[in-house]
Design a protein around this nucleic acid. Sequence first.
DNA 1: TGCCATACCTTGAACCACGAGGTATACCTC
DNA 2: GAGGTATACCTCGTGGTTCAAGGTATGGCA
Lengths: 118, 118
Amino acid sequence: MAKQTNPDFLNGVPELLILQLLARRAMYGYELVRAIEESSGQVLEFGEGCIYPVLHRLESDGDLASRRETVGGRSRVVYRLTASGRKRLVARIAAWRSIVGAVEQVLQGAKHGKPAVS
Amino acid sequence: MAKQTNPDFLNGVPELLILQLLARRAMYGYELVRAIEESSGQVLEFGEGCIYPVLHRLESDGDLASRRETVGGRSRVVYRLTASGRKRLVARIAAWRSIVGAVEQVLQGAKHGKPAVS
DNA sequence: TGCCATACCTTGAACCACGAGGTATACCTC
DNA sequence: GAGGTATACCTCGTGGTTCAAGGTATGGCA
């Protein structure tokens, strides 16, 4: 049995990936959903109900700016990274690498912390 | 001021580390709390309110077995990994590496998924 | 005309880390 | 012997986050 609750290791990962992808080029929500799937080799699949709230929160925090665009009669909301968002991305990546490094350290049974980054 | 909400990347990490540390040797809750801090170089610090519920859940799932021990008048609950828990650890590590690999792939801007593991 | 893909959004539930609080015993100091 | 600190266990409530499901609307295709 052993119910698997939901210890997926995703937490802040959508935000990190959104910031990273938008750092390369401006995109709209629906595009981001599939860009994450494709770019991760179908390993990471976030639904729209997960992506949109993050976009709205990041925008209200000033980390994203949106611009309405109409292509072929279709209305899209295109997001781009602001300067503030770029700083947030750098901080998030640093935090991510710190966590990953620490977990790997435990998994490999290291006894003493090493100052060197990967 | 760009509130930092709580996008720590910890989710299932306590469970993973507990399983890993108990795979090496049996430990009790209070010991685990500080073993995680020390073993991760003070990067990961989980409170007791986070560790104990995980221990109880893992035990009720049959992944841990507990044994009461009295040392110097002090009562401790020592946990050890069961066969089921060992399988869970292997699965959790595989999931962890899969996630980390996928995120790194996106961060490095890979376009096509590669079949090879890291 | 009907169907699917595109494109956006909201809502509700479940889950998890975390802080704060609570109990009890041993050890050390005063 | 009185008081504080460290050990050792536990529970509760809160907040943030993922996620499935549902809802709306338009364009292209058969």
